[in-house]
Amino acid sequence: MGRNPVSMLLSGARREYMLQVVRRCRVLELAVLWTLLACGTAPVLAQQKPKIAASSLTLPVFNPLVWNIMKARGFDAKHGFELEAKPYPSISAFYAAFATGETDTLIGGPTILQKLYQEGVPLRIFGTAFTLADLLIFAKDANIKSLADLKGKQLAADMGGSQFQVIKMYANAKGIELGKDITVVNANFAVARAQLEADRVEAALVIEPLASIILRQNPSWKVIFNGAQGWKEITGQDGWEIVPAIRADAIARVPGAPKMLLAALQDVANVILHETDAADKIAADTVKLPPGILKAAVESKRLNMIVEPAWEPAMRKSIWDMMERAVQAGFYQKLPDDKIIYAP
């Protein structure tokens, strides 16, 4: 029996209607899906890694190498932030950028950071970094064997640096007055070396990597003072040439920044101390040091990077002791308050 044409027409209309409903549902589903995806991107964007800007240097020294290794190995991303290293051509510009807030963090001399803090820079020291082992005084005369032997003679040193402050603190503890017992000729590390080479002074204060370069080129020169040994002699504990600090406003923006940076710095120290060939290559490629110089500094233990939290009692004491001695030596009138050292 044939189907009624009217029924067939109605069935076709129903099918078409149902197809339209299905199409509309699919369009609606897609619209909902896109909306959900769009909503879902907001948290993703919000979770982008925070950027932390660091003062660095264009000079051939080890300070910028820390940031170069951190970036090359991706330790910043590993620990949840994006490092932006900003290189500066001088030490003064390096510190000024941090003081004005152009950068968030740096690795600097603890007693220089003490000065900045007392001048109103809202900084927090959150760890340790390089020991004083890379601070050396060289002499050419074999009869000069210690700082005491320089009495009545001339020492070339950068009087504006934290390294000179360490030398003066040591000298004070030994009853030697720099500037009176020993004449100090103000000179940066490279000029100090040149002054000694030209016999214009009897000794020169330098740090790594210049120390390793000097020993490679002038093996007859003698080290008459090692910062780490000297500091331990008068204090019984380690001292620090440079330590990491971060601005308080950066911590307010990124509360986990001190611990993130500390973990990344510990990874960098591991590369320097245990993957020295790889670190040496990064130094040659980025800081343009002669190949083998970093390796020589590490193997001789003149370059020793120990990264520990500054808030741990022993580390806090060692940093605070340096600040106390800076006051005793007359560099500053009083100690900073205890907020200068970060506490979680």
Results as ranks from 00 to 15, higher is better:
A13H: 11
R14T: 08
R15F: 15
E16P: 00
Y17W: 03
Q20K: 08
R23M: 12
R26V: 07
R26C: 09
A31V: 02
V32E: 08
L37M: 09
A38Y: 05
A42T: 02
I69Y: 08
H79C: 05
E84N: 13
P89Y: 11
S90M: 10
S90H: 13
S92M: 11
A93S: 13
A96P: 00
A96H: 00
A96L: 03
A97R: 00
A97L: 03
A99K: 02
T100N: 13
G101E: 10
E102T: 12
E102S: 09
D104W: 01
T105R: 07
L106Q: 06
G109N: 10
I112D: 14
Q114E: 14
L116A: 01
V121G: 08
L123F: 07
A133T: 02
D134C: 01
L136N: 08
I137R: 01
A139R: 05
A142R: 00
K145H: 15
A148E: 15
K151Y: 05
K151W: 07
K153N: 05
Q154D: 07
D158A: 01
G160H: 06
G161R: 14
Q163T: 01
Q165P: 00
A173W: 03
G175E: 06
K180G: 01
N188R: 12
Q195A: 11
E197V: 01
A203L: 01
P209I: 02
W221I: 14
V223C: 06
N226G: 02
N226F: 04
A228G: 10
A228C: 09
E233Q: 15
G236D: 15
D238L: 14
P244A: 03
R247E: 05
A248L: 04
A248T: 05
I251C: 05
G256Y: 04
A257N: 04
P258Q: 08
L261P: 00
A263I: 07
A264Y: 08
L265E: 05
D267G: 07
V271F: 12
I272E: 05
H274V: 05
H274S: 11
A284F: 11
T286V: 12
V287K: 02
L289R: 11
L294M: 11
K295M: 06
R302I: 03
R302D: 08
M305F: 11
E308F: 10
E308A: 09
P309K: 14
A310S: 14
A310K: 00
W311D: 14
E312N: 14
P313Y: 14
P313T: 07
A314G: 09
K317A: 15
D321T: 08
R325V: 04
R325D: 08
Q328M: 06
F331D: 02
D337W: 15
